[in-house]
Design a protein around this nucleic acid. Structure first.
Lengths: 350, 350
DNA sequence: CTGAAAGCGCTAACAC
DNA sequence: GTGTTAGCGCTTTCAG
């Protein structure tokens, strides 16, 4: 250590002991006499000894660090989830290494490889919107690397997963719009193969079905970059607006798409005529104009549950074979943007 | 490597070479014959060999990783800065390890210690709002650890620093409010000892002075937790509102304080009577009601400049003694919140 | 041009 | 109860 030159060797030398004795004393091994222990511990304290985690990692193939892979930290959902992750990890003595895929499959892979080669003890992953091929994760997982997926999860890997109830969230949002009297509800969402996309679409469809509204494929728009590319969303809105089946409301999936789309609608001054809601975890929804009706996920808790499960796998003595998918409830917060100001509210029954 | 068992030793064995030869071949040492090199390289490629960065770090006391310490990633300023950092680091082959202090000095210290013990090659630091004692960083820096400070920088350490022109940003914002006819301008800001606080306060004062408005201490409110604690900001607004010297405008420093304060004002329905502006890098300012006049920092660029300087220090052959503080311009984006709707605009000359 | 050996900091058999 | 030694994966003298 360039900046922390104290090693176990220095202690050994100073105290006229062997490095192994010191090592054992430091970790409180039962074989060491209380006096020696005391001696070593006090001296270590005094010279401010810190074990070198790199040497430890090399030796033990573990690092007490866990790796997190998300698409981008600027997304409030993810920064909240990361805070949840940290809140637990910190207390259990794990360090958290955060990486961003920026919705790129390649970047995601590079990050994971780096994390693995750094001997992280486990991985917390939310897939990038580009990631269709998950064989890479599968291999890692089969080799025994503890992985917990959250938010955007793969079907094909058997491990713990933690998600919001995306189905219900989408169902609630859509039904709310229906209750408001909207009938032509567009849905702008992410890549078709993402788990969250499928679930939300299912919720949307079921709500329509429940209320006897025929599903119309042309009202579904996919932004494959999850809103990272503004033009994709603009295009979606434009096509919808110009189509013969012009929507009277829009329901967006995903933080980024929701925000971008909301901005576009506002730009086009379509607020008055268009009901709007979407998934977002922003804390600023009440400051908008109109204030934004939003489906909110318990991101912090999702992060917490995910890391708890991960640590459980990491610290489990025997290999885990029974995995569960934990689902947490979403919360529809109704504000102005989804209120139907034009039409009279149509009574729909629950 | 549990998940990547291929080591240099395996290659050596398979090719009937010594590990040192393989090592040298892999790194293209001039001493190795072209044939051997080719042999090794191709085989390595074939079995997908990846050097173990942990072993490397242990040996070389460097990691090709740099550590970042910010108060919280949920702050748009920081997530933008981090994206700037990553954009450069990634291309230069460095990995970025992000940590959050959550405005706690202790947490900041723990994070830095961890990063250092992981042999990061350098540190990019924006101080927590609690951090008054920087002797810890000073020691590290004196021992030779490359550190670049950005945003919240310490006076007492001689190294590269990168900041926005906080003075000018505050000056512009304040003067803008003055041009709008506001005279009793409150300033809600962070801990008094933070560099950004001082600079912004200076800008605020100078703008007042320039326009012959007397400075009034009671209009300055410090939120020592940088807006992390909502009550602090509420308290500040309340005291201002109830004071004998009620402000006609508020200028906030810092992303978090600005947002929280804006929310409070809106809650209290003070929007109409109170001019408002503040430092924030949110991309959503135009969606608010009223739309938010903001001082925006070039966060992405600040991150880029910071990492460039850091890498320059890291890779410099001789110790650097000449350090500079780079200052980037802020941008005042005028929207509705700062427009004086009650009083007639008073002509003030530039 | 290539190999043997030491060592980075630490742990864990295996002695004694 | 404590010391000796080997080894984690890699680089780097030092020999040849």
């Amino acid at each position: 250590m360039k900046f922390d030159t104290v090693t176990i060797k220095d202690i050994a030398k100073a105290l006229n002991l062997s490095t192994s004795t010191v090592s054992r004393a430091l970790r409180g091994s039962y074989e060491i006499s209380p006096e020696t222990k005391k001696l070593v511990l006090e001296y270590a304290e005094q010279i401010n000894y810190r074990p070198n985690p790199i040497a430890l990692s090399l030796k033990e193939r573990r690092s007490r660090a866990i790796g997190v892979v998300v698409s981008e930290i600027a997304n409030t959902y993810f920064s909240q989830a990361i805070n949840g992750i940290e809140s637990i990890a910190y207390n259990k003595g794990y360090h958290v290494i955060i990486t961003q895929s920026h919705e790129s499959q390649e970047r995601e892979k590079v990050n994971v490889q780096h994390l693995v080669s750094r001997s992280v003890d486990g991985l917390l992953v939310s897939l990038s919107s580009e990631t269709s091929d998950i064989s890479f994760f599968k291999e890692l997982h089969e080799k025994g690397l503890p992985i917990v997926f959250f938010d955007r999860i793969p079907d094909e890997i058997e491990t713990h997963k933690v998600v919001a109830n995306n189905y219900q969230g989408a169902f609630d949002a859509t039904e709310h719009l229906i209750f408001q009297g909207f009938r032509n509800i567009a849905h702008i969402t992410s890549s078709a193969f993402l788990s969250i996309t499928k679930e939300r679409l299912r919720g949307y469809k079921n709500a329509l079905e429940k209320h006897g509204i025929p599903f119309n494929e042309t009202l579904i728009k996919h932004c494959n970059h999850g809103g990272m590319i503004v033009e994709e969303v603009e295009e979606a809105v434009n096509v919808l607006q110009k189509g013969e089946n012009k929507p009277d409301a829009i329901f967006c999936a995903g933080d980024r798409i929701t925000m971008v789309c909301f901005g576009i609608i506002k730009e086009l001054k379509l607020n008055k005529e268009l009901g709007f809601t979407g998934f977002t975890n922003t804390n600023l929804a009440h400051l908008f104009s109109p204030t934004l009706t939003a489906v909110r996920q318990p991101a912090f808790e999702i992060g917490q549950v995910a890391i708890e499960h991960l640590i459980q796998i990491i610290e489990s003595k025997r290999p885990i074979t029974k995995f569960e998918t934990k689902m947490l409830d979403t919360d529809l917060v109704v504000r102005e943007s989804s209120i139907n100001v034009n039409k009279e509210k149509i009574k729909a029954k629950l």
